[in-house]
Structure formats: structure tokens, C-alpha cells
Amino acid sequence: MEMLDVRGLSCPLPVLKTKKTLEKGCQELQITGSSQVSRENVSKFAISQGFDVKLVNDSPDEWSIIINK
């Protein structure tokens, strides 16, 4: 499984980096980020691309999700 770190990045880089990684053919990706907004945006984007989204870490300063098809 590939890993992607988008912690602290401004909009829309978390989504853009996710998009780039998926375009390379990645089927399963763990994304770690920090802001609530980026989590919402990345999750929404992944779902729109037909991926399932699973939240695996939801601590106050950090979240991680695993997306796969």
C-alpha cells in the first residue's frame, strides 16, 4: 500500500496530490493529513472516484484514511 503525507498543506494540494497518486494507477492508498477541511475534501474526492474510504486514525492533530477500490 502506498502512503501519502499531506499534513499542513494548503488547499487544494491534499486533493491534488491524492489525484496525482491515483492517476499513477494506485489502487490502495493511506493518506495522512492534519486539517479537518483536507480530510473532508480528500474523502469526498476519493468517493467521487469510486473508492471506499476508511478512517484509521482520528486524533486531534492528525487523521489517516485508507482508500481502496
Partner: peptide, 16 residues
């Protein structure tokens, strides 16, 4: 999360 640039940007970037 209202943003007057973000709406257009995301529309062009990811069709949101």
C-alpha cells in the same frame, strides 16, 4: 468553508 476562488479552482481541477 466558503471561498470565492476555491469554488472555481475546484471546478476546473476536479469538477467539484
Amino acid at each position: 468553508r466558503l471561498c470565492l476562488s476555491g469554488g472555481f479552482r475546484d471546478f476546473f481541477l476536479i469538477g467539484e
